[in-house]
C-alpha cells in the first residue's frame, strides 16, 4: 500500500528519478502507477457497496415492476403494485399515517437535538465533550432495547403506572401511554435524537464566536442574531439531521410493531409482512419505493423552503 505520493508534481519528478526498466516505463508512468495504487485502495470498498447495496436496490426496484404468479416472481412488466399503493385506500391511509408519525418523530428529534447542541455550544461550553460523548454512547446502546424497554416503562404493569398507583394518584393503569401514535413518535424520537445530535453539533461548530459578535456589534439582538446568523449557518446541519431522522423513522419496522398499536402502524410493518408471510415481493418493493419517493419529495420541499426562509 503506497501512501507516499501525495503531490502530483513531486511524484512525477521523483518517479522519473527512481528510474524503472524501460519496459516498465512504457507500460505505466508515475502518474499511472499512482492512479493504479489509489484505485486498488478505494476499489474493494467501492465494489463491495456497488455489488451488495446498489445492485440489490436495483433488483429490488425491478421486482416492484414485476409480478408474482404461483409464488414465483416473473418478469412481466407492469405498474399494478404502484397503482395499488397509491390508490388503495388502506395503503394510502397507511402511507399518510407513516408520514404523520415520521414527521412528528423527526421534528421532535431534530428540534431537541438542535436545542441540545445549541445548549452545549453556547451555554455549557466547558462540558461539551463529556455531554456529547454521553449522546454517542446512547447512540450505540441498543436499538431494540430502546424500543422494547418502553413496554416495561409505560405498560399497564410498567414502572410509571406502578408508581402512579403506588402513590395513589391513579387507581386504574393509564393505558393511553402505550400502543398509539403518540407512543410511536416518542419512542422513535428516543433512538433518533442521538443520531440527529452529531450533524447539528458539527454545524454549530462552524458558527464562529466572531460571527455572533459581529451580528451583535452591527445591531442584532439575541433573536435577530439567532435568525439571521446562527440558524442560517447551522441550517445545512439541521436539515441533514431532520432528513436522516425522517427517513429512518419512515422506514422503521420495530417501533410500530412493538409500541405503535392500531393507529401507530406504519409502512414498514406491511412491507415486512409482504416479504415474510405473503412472499409478494413486488408489492412490498413497490410500497418501499413509494414510501422512499414520497419521503424524498417531502425532504426536497423542506430543503427548498428552508433554504429560502433562512438566508
Amino acid at each position: 500500500m503506497s501512501v507516499t505520493e501525495a503531490r502530483p508534481g513531486a511524484t512525477a519528478a521523483r518517479g522519473g528519478r527512481r528510474g524503472q526498466g524501460p519496459g516498465g516505463r512504457r507500460r505505466l508512468g508515475a502518474g499511472g502507477r499512482r492512479a493504479l495504487a489509489l484505485g486498488l485502495q478505494v476499489g474493494p470498498a467501492t465494489a463491495f457497496v456497488a455489488f451488495f447495496l446498489l445492485a440489490p436496490l436495483v433488483v429490488f426496484f425491478l421486482y416492484s415492476l414485476w409480478r408474482v404468479r404461483d409464488y414465483e416472481i416473473v418478469a412481466e412488466w407492469n405498474l399494478d403494485a404502484y397503482k395499488q399503493a397509491l390508490t388503495d385506500d388502506s395503503y394510502r391511509r397507511l402511507l399518510w399515517n407513516t408520514i404523520k408519525i415520521a414527521g412528528g418523530a423527526s421534528l421532535l428529534s431534530a428540534g431537541l437535538a438542535f436545542a441540545f447542541a445549541h445548549t452545549l455550544r453556547f451555554k455549557l461550553r466547558r462540558w461539551q465533550e463529556p455531554l456529547l460523548f454521553a449522546v454517542v454512547i446512547a447512540m450505540f446502546s441498543g436499538y431494540l432495547v430502546r424500543v422494547y424497554a418502553w413496554r416495561t416503562l409505560l405498560g399497564d404493569s410498567g414502572i410509571v403506572n406502578s408508581a402512579l398507583r403506588g402513590l395513589g394518584i391513579t387507581s386504574e393503569p393509564l393505558s393511553f401511554l402505550l400502543f398509539n401514535r403518540g407512543a410511536a413518535i416518542v419512542v422513535l424520537a428516543n433512538f433518533l435524537i442521538p443520531l440527529a445530535v452529531l450533524p447539528v453539533y458539527a454545524a454549530l461548530q462552524n458558527v464562529r464566536d466572531a460571527e455572533i459578535e459581529a451580528a451583535r456589534d452591527l445591531g442584532c439582538g439575541s433573536w435577530g442574531t439567532f435568525w439571521r446568523v446562527t440558524a442560517p449557518l447551522a441550517w445545512p446541519g439541521i436539515f441533514f439531521s431532520w432528513a436522516l431522522a425522517f427517513l429512518a423513522a419512515a422506514g422503521d419496522y420495530v417501533v410500530p410493531q412493538l409500541v405503535g398499536g392500531a393507529n401507530g402502524t406504519m409502512v414498514g410493518v406491511v412491507i415486512t409482512d409482504t416479504f415474510q408471510t405473503d412472499y409478494n415481493f413486488p408489492r412490498g418493493a413497490a410500497l418501499a419505493f413509494t414510501t422512499l419517493l414520497v419521503s424524498l419529495t417531502i425532504i426536497g420541499i423542506v430543503r427548498f423552503v428552508g433554504g429560502k426562509v433562512l438566508r
Binding site: L57, L244, A250, G251
Partner: peptide, 24 residues
C-alpha cells in the same frame, strides 16, 4: 465517492434488508 459511501447511512435499514433478501 463520499456521496456514494453515504448511501448506506441514509437508506433505511429495512430497505437494505429487503433489498438484500431479494438480491440473495
Amino acid at each position: 465517492l463520499a456521496g456514494f459511501f453515504v448511501v448506506p447511512m441514509v437508506v433505511p435499514a429495512l430497505f437494505i434488508g429487503v433489498a438484500l433478501l431479494s438480491f440473495f
